[in-house]
Design a protein around this nucleic acid. Structure first.
Lengths: 167, 167
DNA sequence: TCAAACTTTCAATACTTATTGAAAATTAGC
DNA sequence: GCTAATTTTCAATAAGTATTGAAAGTTTGA
């Protein structure tokens, strides 16, 4: 396989993965492009490489900055902005975990806490409801703690510990 | 908060969460409804509770069966099918992890393995590309192993081990 | 202060995905 | 085999999301 094909394929695949991460396709593709680029790229370059409009490029770059997985870079002698992606996979993973926790896990935990205290009126319905909510809340809170440790951890410590744990 | 409100709110929240899980909103809502129901429900009951059409209900129930997080149940003396959700949160979590691994992680790992061997033609581009792909592949494979252990693990063992590890 | 370079916004539109509902298919009992 | 109950399919359409491109806004340096 040639480099250009491989590059194309990786960008496509990363675009699909984006969906499972709460990014949209273009966002993920820009991220992939920046990740494998040896130098920061300008909006123009991103537009050309991915064949997308200026507005689209701009919006999705903003969203990536908002996720803190793409950074603004200034290049000496150039007036326009350049962008680079976080290249350290570990840092990337922690950042994504952090964002997803606050976008996905926290909202559902908030609801679980709210509905946790509905009075048990003695019916089967509320009994079952309370049981399930309790279990979900418990699970969610344990997961939350685990993710928190992950986010704050050091790569070497983490994999070392996990390796010991998972065999 | 009253039970009916709480129920409504939980179903809505679970519907949103569905998005971050590769389910769609209705699928996740049906799942929530079944999870808190003390008895298996028929398609009719699901249609009424969620105000959705027969076709919609049917399609999304099939999808949930396909994910193996909802089961078919037959009720004595009734001709129609009834459905119940997996109620054990731990089993649910493992099943979701299993499905997501094969729907999200495996495809990207496949691509990473494919593009891993592009020849280094000496340019900056291929050098950087190969480095990033190597890192991503390494990370993905470690994660894959970890998820695998999780899927095969017992709840009590897992949280015990994790608690020791994370704190 | 001006104007060129560059970035942002947003209404219009294209594209994608979800939903409906009625017709077709299947199933079960007589 | 027939019929009524039930499930499945799928074309039509509604709803939701992404994308464009041009106009408006902002920044920079002479």
């Amino acid at each position: 396989m040639k480099y250009t094909e491989a590059k194309e394929e990786l960008i496509q695949a990363w675009g699909n993965l984006g969906y499972s991460w709460g990014l949209n396709k273009t966002m993920a593709q820009i991220h992939a492009l920046l990740m494998i680029a040896p130098k920061p790229l300008s909006t123009e370059e991103i537009m050309t490489e991915l064949n997308i409009s200026r507005g689209n490029a701009n919006m999705n770059i903003r969203a990536l900055l908002d996720w803190h997985i793409v950074y603004r870079v200034s290049v000496a002698g150039e007036r326009k902005e350049f962008f680079k992606a976080e290249k350290d996979v570990w840092t990337l993973a922690r950042q994504v975990a952090k964002e997803r926790r606050s976008r996905e896990l926290e909202p559902i935990l908030k609801v679980l806490r709210e509905v946790h205290d509905v009075p048990n009126d003695g019916t089967e319905e509320t009994k079952e409801f309370k049981k399930i909510v309790k279990d979900l809340k418990n699970f969610g809170e344990k997961s939350d703690g685990m993710i928190d440790t992950f986010i704050k951890s050091e790569e070497s410590w983490f994999w070392g510990a996990v390796m010991k744990l998972f065999k």
